[in-house]
Amino acid sequence: MDALLSTFFSVFLAEMGDRTQILAAVLALRYRRNGAIIGGLACATLLNCIFSALGGSVIDQWISETPLKLFAGLAYIFAGIGMLMWRRTVDPLATWKTPAFLTAFLGLFILEFGDKSQFIIAAQSARTPIWGMAMAGGFVGIMAATIPAILLRARLAQVVPLKPIRWISGALLLGWGLILATQAFGLA
């Protein structure tokens, strides 16, 4: 249960104000088909979370606890730094002539692939014997952070103060990563 909750909260924080939210909101605004966008998001997210969690479970078999703690610390540190840094603009996929579900699925899958949330899910999965809990926590975290963006669309930036949320989330992730990294080196 620890892996489920910690992954959920970590990934939820990492996705706040992230490009996944922005692209999902743009696609919802373009297509006006919330169900198709949410379905595409769910399929893309599930696939990415499965890859991440399976990758983490393989890593768990190769290395001992101390390097795993360092891996987790680095995943959180880089996620925190990514939240605090300047963001690239999101390609709205305006030239894609595919239906709403397919555009959402492919666009969000590509955008999420190799994202900070995947590393958090992999790190959490590597630290637990039940990798499915980390996968489920990551999936629910991404969905919980992104579905409101789909429903709010253009009002997202007006209703949710994205910049302060990104800074607070980034600081929390960075702090947690530093704690894990210092523990891995036996400094804390």
Rank of each mutant, 00 (worst) to 15 (best):
Ala24Asn: 11
Val26Pro: 02
Leu27Asn: 09
Arg30Tyr: 04
Arg30Gly: 07
Arg32Pro: 10
Arg33Phe: 05
Ala36Gly: 04
Ile37Thr: 09
Gly39Gln: 05
Ala42Pro: 11
Ala42Ser: 15
Leu46Ile: 13
Ile50Met: 08
Phe51Asn: 04
Ser52Pro: 05
Ser52Asp: 12
Ser52Glu: 09
Ser52Arg: 12
Gly55Gln: 13
Ser57Cys: 04
Ile59Val: 15
Trp62Ala: 15
Thr66Pro: 03
Pro67Asp: 10
Leu68Val: 06
Lys69Cys: 04
Lys69Arg: 15
Phe71Met: 13
Ala72Asn: 07
Ala72Asp: 06
Leu74Met: 11
Ala75Val: 00
Tyr76Ala: 07
Phe78Thr: 15
Ala79Met: 03
Ala79Ile: 00
Gly80Pro: 01
Gly82Ile: 07
Gly82His: 13
Gly82Met: 11
Gly82Glu: 13
Met83Ile: 05
Val90Asn: 00
Asp91His: 12
Asp91Ala: 04
Pro92Arg: 02
Leu93Gly: 07
Thr95Asp: 14
Thr95Cys: 05
Lys97Asp: 13
Pro99Val: 11
Ala100Thr: 10
Thr103Ser: 09
Thr103Ala: 07
Ala104Ser: 15
Phe105Met: 15
Phe105Cys: 14
Leu106Arg: 10
Leu108Arg: 11
Leu108Cys: 05
Leu111Thr: 10
Glu112His: 10
Glu112Ala: 09
Asp115Ser: 13
Asp115Leu: 06
Gln118Lys: 14
Ala123His: 01
Ala123Gln: 03
Gln124Val: 02
Ala126Phe: 01
Ala126Thr: 04
Ala126Gln: 02
Arg127Lys: 11
Arg127Asp: 06
Pro129Ser: 15
Ile130Gly: 02
Ile130Thr: 10
Trp131Gln: 12
Gly132Ala: 13
Gly132Met: 11
Met133Trp: 06
Ala134Lys: 03
Met135Thr: 06
Met135Tyr: 02
Met135Glu: 07
Met135Leu: 14
Ala136Pro: 07
Gly137Trp: 00
Gly137Ile: 02
Phe139Glu: 04
Phe139Arg: 11
Ile142Phe: 00
Met143His: 10
Thr146Cys: 05
Ile147Pro: 06
Pro148Gly: 00
Ala149Phe: 08
Arg153Cys: 03
Ala154Phe: 08
Arg155Val: 01
Arg155Tyr: 02
Gln158Glu: 12
Val160Trp: 03
Pro161Lys: 00
Pro161Arg: 01
Ile165Arg: 05
Ile165Ala: 12
Arg166Val: 00
Arg166Phe: 01
